[in-house]
Design a protein around this nucleic acid. Structure first.
Lengths: 232, 232
DNA sequence: CCTTGTGAAGCTGTTCACAGCC
DNA sequence: GGCTGTGAACAGCTTCACAAGG
């Protein structure tokens, strides 16, 4: 069973883009959108890399996985490159997502302005608490978790967001998968197990702060034995 | 200017833990806390790795950067290991954070239950909008951005969270740095530039969904030429 | 015997440096 | 001349497989 994760060309379109690159393409997309708004028509890898906060060589390498969309000696056409990345990312269509758990975080996510311009549309809100079902949040009526199957099927939703407490996360994930969702973004502080073929990404708010706290601790040198190297 | 990022021992305590390991230590901590709650006193690397969702070899390698806290042939003492990791992560003290931007997301973060049990305390809320200043959110009074210097100094806050719109992020970051904050968690969809010695971590909600959308697109096989290898 | 701790191998991602092309 | 695209070197992370040691 050889895994063919080759960044090789198939029939013209690039396939098998590295994960690290995929994670950066949306950042490039945002930078290109900003350039378009500023009326900039073309740019070099150095300029774009600066806007995106990466090394120019890395940017060029990343783009090379998509194809050759630049012009040597000149740079990249902003609009053309933007379109090519958007197409590769599947952003030529809108992706409908369902948010499960309409507490503080779920409500904040449903109101988040940044989604609509990135091809993401919050299509439905779901909560297990009967008290919340029927209320309106960000212009959407909160549905019952029991209606999840119908909602997912009806609107052909393939992406679910879990914004519940940790102890409900696995149960919600199971129901999302049963309903036909094949990608999950999990904000709950818990691991969720899913069958093969389902993708899960996890965003853990307190872990991010704990990582910062670790570095902060090292800066201030809690055990002040060290020669206190200037943290360059 | 030689950067000494060596995972070498100094005076007994491990130094220079790899970034990837630091990012996982909070996950192990959470798993250990769960085991403690279940009354489990000791566990093997296999059990703990499963709870944390990682490969057992990776777990052991990670722990080896901290020291030798296990017993060969037996496993790890849950409470002892939990304490050692907590100490390494600087979680023996509470870290006070200030949240800037008390919109939907900022409000949700200020109410987030997961922080308090992880050594994170939301100490102050700040907003630039005079309409919001003075209101109470999650039991805290929202202060003016102009009072940031005093707040940071007064409570010796070293970590700031940016939950503003993208176009305000850089300005807020500048003010946080000027006030003395040396670690920033940025939720705004924008890059922020900070001087050396200040750490920034970025959480981008729409990027996470865009990455899922990319994989989703590939699953459904837009150009359905591929032999459809089962994604194990 | 069992499980940890760890050199070594392998893999992924980053950076360099330059050939290729406009 | 200038900038892209990319092989090759490099660095960091993961996984393996086994020696060390209770």
């Amino acid at each position: 069973m050889t895994i063919l994760r080759s960044p090789r060309l198939a029939d013209g379109t690039a396939r098998g883009i590295p994960d690290a690159t995929v994670a950066r393409l949306p950042v490039y997309l945002r930078a290109l959108n900003a350039l378009t708004e500023q009326g900039v028509g073309s740019c070099s890898s150095i300029e774009l890399a600066e806007k995106a906060g990466v090394n120019p060589a890395k940017l060029r390498k990343d783009l090379s996985y998509l194809g050759s969309y630049g012009t040597r000696g000149v740079g990249y056409d902003v609009e053309y490159l933007r379109y090519q990345i958007a197409r590769e990312m599947g952003q030529t269509q809108d992706w409908e997502v369902v948010i499960v758990g309409i507490g503080n975080l779920g409500s904040a996510l449903s109101a988040y302005q940044g989604f609509s311009t990135r091809g993401i549309r919050v299509a439905a809100l779901v909560d297990a608490d009967p008290q919340r079902v029927g209320s309106t949040v960000s212009g959407l009526t909160v549905s019952s978790l029991d209606d999840l199957d119908a909602i997912v099927a009806d609107r052909s939703i393939s992406i679910g967001v879990i914004a519940t407490p940790g102890d409900a996360a696995q149960q919600v994930a199971d129901r999302l998968v049963a309903a036909g969702v094949t990608s999950i973004l999990n904000f709950a502080p818990a691991l969720v197990q899913v069958p093969d073929g389902v993708d899960v990404r996890k965003v853990d708010l307190s872990v991010e702060l704990q990582i910062l706290a670790y570095h902060e601790q090292r800066k201030t040198g809690t055990d002040s034995k060290e020669p206190k190297v200037s943290n360059a």
